[in-house]
Design a protein around this nucleic acid. Structure first.
Length: 270
DNA sequence: GGCGTCTGCTTAACTACCCT
DNA sequence: AGGGTAGTTAAGCAGACGCC
């Protein structure tokens, strides 16, 4: 196995329908390589990461410059961006890393017009959304929606923490002032759900918003030391959690999913 | 012109992994 | 070593675009 022999596979991956060149990372390409080729050894890939990344960058560059073997599935948007402002640096950068480390936000996109710092997260989100929607992102993201969704998380951590605090205080303020949920800035997140008996017994209250449910669950898990010490993502269910989830162990991600089964809207139950 | 569709963003929690 | 990111799930909102 030589590094160069990976070129066709990498080309296939980068030119596959639905691949967003502006957001795909070298890491993602390496993963796809591993997934696509059983003969590839993970350790070998790791050991040759830099060389592989260089090849990925080279292929990416070729595709961008129009030398792609074929079918560029995605008609580049009419206007701007001659080349995607993408996650992959030019070959010269040899080091292909995750998108814009320097720009913690959006690997994928078109630099938003420096959102003014006084904007709320929601406003910024809308601004970004509007910005994006002014371009033909729709067709581009239609099949890629899932991958876009998976990317979504990137939202800058600092912003998130700030927002979290803001949200909490907003909720408190609104509650205290009996103010009508000012557009309930947070959409459905602040929405209160009626908890099932099993969930209520864990959370300790009959109603909570989804994020609060997750929070209280984690409080309970930690308070009872229910995380698997060897894999902290795994939750070892005690009696209450077994009654809740119906399994002896649950992955933290699955837990979030299962929680939904125990939430109901007030109007649904009344 | 109006309505329907589509898209991305927000929050919470956590760990593992990657990069600098 | 420390910081940043990916991954999961939910509902609702805003705005642009497409179609009739």
């Amino acid at each position: 196995m030589t590094i160069a022999s990976l070129t066709p596979s990498i080309t296939r991956i980068l030119t596959a329908p639905g691949v967003d060149l502006a957001s795909i990372s070298a890491k993602a390409v390496r993963r796809q390589l591993l997934a696509a080729d059983d003969s590839l050894d993970e350790e070998w890939v790791r050991a040759h990461k830099h060389e592989i990344d260089a090849v990925i960058a080279q292929v990416f560059h070729n595709i961008n410059s129009g030398n792609a073997p074929s079918s560029e599935p995605e008609p580049r948007p009419k206007s701007e961006s001659p080349a995607p402002a993408l996650a992959l640096p030019p070959p010269s950068a040899a080091k292909v890393t995750k998108a814009p480390k320097a720009e913690p936000s959006k690997p994928k996109k078109l630099s938003p017009p420096a959102p003014s710092s006084h904007l709320s997260d929601a406003q910024i989100a809308r601004q970004l959304s509007a910005e994006l929607n002014t371009r033909p992102t729709r067709s581009a993201s239609t099949g890629a929606s899932s991958s876009a969704g998976s990317k979504r998380k990137r939202a800058d951590t600092k912003t998130k923490k700030k927002s979290k605090a803001e949200i909490d205080s907003e909720d408190d303020d609104a509650a205290e002032q009996g103010e009508k949920p000012k557009k309930k800035a947070r959409g459905g997140f602040a929405k209160e759900y009626i908890l099932s008996d099993a969930l209520a017994s864990v959370a300790g209250v009959p109603t909570l918003s989804r994020p609060q449910v997750v929070k209280s669950l984690w409080d309970y898990i930690k308070g009872n030391n229910l995380q698997n010490p060897t894999d902290k993502r795994e939750i070892i269910c005690d009696d209450k959690l077994k009654a809740l989830f119906g399994v002896a162990k649950v992955n933290m991600f699955t837990m979030n999913k299962l929680v939904g089964n125990h939430l109901s809207l007030p109007e649904e139950t009344s």
